[in-house]
Amino acid sequence: MANGFEKSRNKWGWVFISLSIIFIGLFIFYPLIYSLYLSFFSTKGAMKNFVGFGNYKRLFQDNYFILSVKNILVILVIQVPIMLFLALIFAFLLNDPKLKFKGVFRTALFLPAVSSLIAYSVVFKMMFSSEGLINNMLMKMHIIKEPIRWLLDPFWSKVTLIIAMTWRWTGYNMMLYLAGLQNIPQEIYEAAEIDGAGKVAQFFKITIPLLKPIILFTTILSTIGTLQLFDEPMMLAAGVTTGSSVGPGNSLLTPSVYIYNVSFKYVPNFGYASAISYMIVIISVILSLIQFKVAGEEK
């Protein structure tokens, strides 16, 4: 009899999730399916022609699309490892029970994660302007002789973007690692210290191996985040170059920015924009699977 009760009560589960299912269905699942449908059409304004896989074929010949993927891969390969490594080091250092002012350091390092993407991009854009703060400082310290054209040069604009993103997200990832480190008993470190293991050895031999699941988690989060990059390149590029180039020589063009431009800035082609979107979803799934695989094999 109790079983019958259990079953009828179980129906309440659907009641509780129904609202969210409606919202997710309307604003995520439906758009997802509709966008798949649209990706097989060429749409110019109100015209809609079925083109089969035409949009997808076009992607592989579209230099802007290819460039946007390349840009994002460069950032992914350089920025994500630097950021996660720094975050690991800071988390490791802050996890030491003998360290003083821990709270102050933790708060300070986490602070960038509180800033809005638009706000910090704007602030960085001003700091890195050609006659701005960073160049002045570097020149006063005699590190450089001539101002660096941070935002006006294809190479340096990517460097600026990488510096800005690292500033914004290192503390956030550090917090995730600190949470993970709480599950590692301090005794392990104490024992290692008694055995004569220095800080560096402790970091590589204890912290990194034991944090592996969280490192994988943050790697996937960062990968997805980088593939979706929109606010920062939009802001860093805005007003810097004339015409439709996103950053000098489109150095800051990302897939998300490109989708936006194809949908709303140029002659709107929703069909083609949908094909680009699907390509990005496929790329994120593939990259996440690869990361799972690599992490799994190392175990």
Partner: peptide, 24 residues
């Protein structure tokens, strides 16, 4: 199963949903 499907959508960038959401 529903929960799994919901979690999977975390991978989808908003940019990918932008056009249909705009039309909606």
């Amino acid at each position: 199963y529903v929960y799994g499907a919901v979690l999977l959508t975390m991978m989808i960038p908003f940019a990918a949903l932008m056009v249909p959401v705009f039309k909606l």
